[in-house]
Design a protein around this nucleic acid. Structure first.
Lengths: 410, 410
DNA sequence: AGCGTTTGGTCAAGAGGAACACAAACCCGC
DNA sequence: GCGGGTTTGTGTTCCTCTTGACCAAACGCT
């Protein structure tokens, strides 16, 4: 509604929008024939021809003859984005690991490295150095063939969207760390560095290439120690005024609850986070990922203590999700990371609590599914984030065509 | 991000968008001179001339000479939307009252009636009849001058956006009542009837004409018995998949709390709604609006019991708002109806609780303000809702101009 | 091999805003 | 009150971009 992209539109805007639409379509659904593009965009064959031709001439797209047409009529060539021309570097700072990937247009993961890291506080500069060292061989192998047009970084923490400042990251003990700048200096690539919260990027990835393809209103919930959320509203990520939106782990759900790392009390995170599960299962709350795996394995073997711990956690999951269902009215809730792994054991509780706690109308349309992309979702989201400028306005990246010599006056 | 209005764009789209932008601008900020429109839209003088000329010729806008220019240079004529050509009928079903208003383009309230109604259950057909009787004289007086292009209805309840079905309305004991259809039949105007939740419409009104003008990320909180919320995200109302989003009154905040009218337990509403305040102040919880006024008056006179009741309510307001700040990261929270009236007495508690409960980053950018439009906000929002189709695509409402006779071949 | 069908290729037409030159209407100072 | 400076309306031409129509090309099918 209201919306209006409030700027003066001109015919140039139209072409930009159409180029963007087509590239977006190919980025997500390649390969597509020209005639499929006609059907999807509503543009005419002439227009599609011109636009795809421009993208092809500009080096963003390749067209190839379909091998086996199978249908009557003149065959339509298939278009797909070139993944060897422009690439992005996706980085991730997670709780237990660091990851680097080289991703081509269209979403193909060309190379991919993840290394475990010990939990605990570490300064930004050394982490950025680690990422730079991990990225170096990937960059070297791509140097002559491809151009890196951006860096996307997924970060476990509260990220200011405007400049990639980490306002806080309890897992690392950070406060107000200008991570984008630091990474930019370390990597020495003269490209923009976009930083965003890991759950927000997980939501973006699941929306574009995961369990929520085609779903325009969804809630992605993920977390290990901390619990975060990403929300897609009408197909767009919910950012809020500063980019901090989606901190669902710190919604107060239990005033009689435990103190939270954030300084508050009774946050959802204190009831559904990894530590709560471990505590309920009789493990040391800070025992980490291996202990969680142990709990899940024991539950899989039918051990009552662990099953009860999971059930209790599932109750609290249901309570928190009920509030979020009432707030956002999503058509899908995607459970990532620890919640996805817990899901088989807690789905009954979650559904039951949702049934009696959420309001009828929004509840009836909210499905719950485990994530499809696994632990790489934030990393893939970071790649999508880095590609965004290209997808929004491809014109700026079209390779220059042989200059038209224009004779003045003639 | 991503967004893309995914359709094929053409030059016609451009004109539509520009007409819409200008009419929107005038609707919200009239009067504006042509040169101000140039500055605001980025379009050229030629384009503005053509577009404003088309709107003027079509009867949507009037241009008039500015009386006292005061500035050097050729004076620019002032444009304003005509409020006598196209009007909408705004209706409201509130807890304690019914309201009807005739509103012209540009937002001028031409006529306005509100009548008290007793709380309690009443069927939709008789309420719709009441509204129709209230609207009749307004319609009669406007009949020859103006055209009613739509009906907007604000409703205390959970409303399905697609068809104006009331999924539930605890105040009236309704479930699944097709209110849009019923009102449409009663009013016998052959125009679309748009129904939406009162808090969602309050948010829209405060965003466009109230305390939140120019603020693109805001949370509006209002309620009497029930507590509702409306959210504006990036300038657009948050609807969710079915239009049910924003039911913040039913977010669980206290698992040890009281049972809620919605069937759940410990909803925010049970701690910050009218009944909670009355209970804490030693009044009968169902005593209604007059009792609330009494409590506020006593508090204004310094009565400790009422001040304590307000303080306790303020604590819970802070807790709920903290969660919402973490979720939405709004730059403004607008407190409407009972919360606006309570605000002077609870601001200290609210701010204190927000300070220790919400996360630092989003909290720092969230102001809290009482609403500016008072109890008419939902009614004004309903008018805005009904005008929306006209504002989005004015071309369809332009009065036909003398047909251009085109001689074929010549 | 011939026919129907689907799609590509090309070009004129139509729509819409930008850019530019010029005229009009205001303020100001003398 | 008259001329200069300034701002803005007016009209024309130019440029961009999509549409639509017509023909050719490439496929399956009989």
């Amino acid at each position: 509604m209201t919306s209006r992209d409030t700027a003066g539109q001109r015919s140039e805007t139209v072409r930009r929008a159409n180029l963007s639409t087509i590239l977006h379509e190919l980025h997500l659904n390649a390969p597509l024939s020209r005639s499929q593009l006609v059907a999807r965009t509503g543009l005419t064959r002439s227009a599609i021809r011109g636009l795809v031709g421009e993208l092809t001439a500009g080096g963003l797209v390749i067209e190839e003859r379909r091998s086996s047409p199978g249908t009557p009529g003149r065959p339509s060539p298939l278009s797909r984005p070139r993944d060897d021309r422009y690439v992005v570097l996706a980085l991730e700072i997670a709780v237990d690991s660091l990851a680097v990937a080289m991703v081509g247009l269209g979403g193909s993961v060309l190379e991919h490295v993840r290394v475990d890291r010990a939990r605990g506080h570490l300064d930004a500069d050394s982490l950025a150095g680690d990422l730079a060292r991990m990225a170096a061989p990937l960059l070297a192998r791509r140097a002559e063939r491809s151009t890196v047009i951006g860096i996307g970084l997924s970060m476990v923490g509260v990220v200011r969207a405007s400049d990639g400042m980490i306002r806080s990251a309890p897992n690392l003990g950070w406060q107000d760390v200008p991570l984008a700048d630091i990474v930019s200096r370390r990597l020495r690539l003269d490209v923009p560095v976009s930083v965003a919260n890991d759950a927000d990027l997980g939501a973006l990835a699941e929306h574009r290439r995961g369990a929520a393809v085609g779903v325009d209103n969804l809630l992605y919930v993920a977390g290990e120690v901390g619990v975060g959320g990403g929300v897609i509203v009408d197909g767009r990520p919910l950012a809020g005024a500063g980019g901090y939106a989606g901190e669902i782990g710190h919604v107060p759900v239990n005033p009689a609850g435990a103190e939270c790392r954030c300084g508050s009390r009774g946050c959802w995170e204190t009831e559904v986070g990894e530590r709560a599960l471990l505590r309920r299962a009789g493990r040391r709350p800070t025992a980490g990922r291996a202990a969680v795996d142990d709990v899940l394995a024991a539950a899989g073997d039918g051990s009552p203590r662990e099953l009860e711990a999971l059930a209790a956690t599932g109750e609290w999951m249901g309570i928190g999700l009920a509030g979020l269902v009432n707030i956002f009215n999503p058509s899908l809730i995607v459970l990532g990371s620890i919640f996805g792994r817990m899901y088989p054991f807690v789905s009954a509780q979650v559904e039951a609590v949702l049934g009696r706690t959420a309001m009828r109308a929004p509840r009836e349309m909210a499905r719950v599914l485990p994530a499809a992309l696994g632990s790489d979702a934030p990393l893939l989201g970071a790649a999508e984030l880095a590609f965004e400028p290209l997808l929004v306005d491809p014109a700026g990246w079209l390779a220059p065509r042989p200059a038209l010599v224009r004779i003045a006056g003639a």
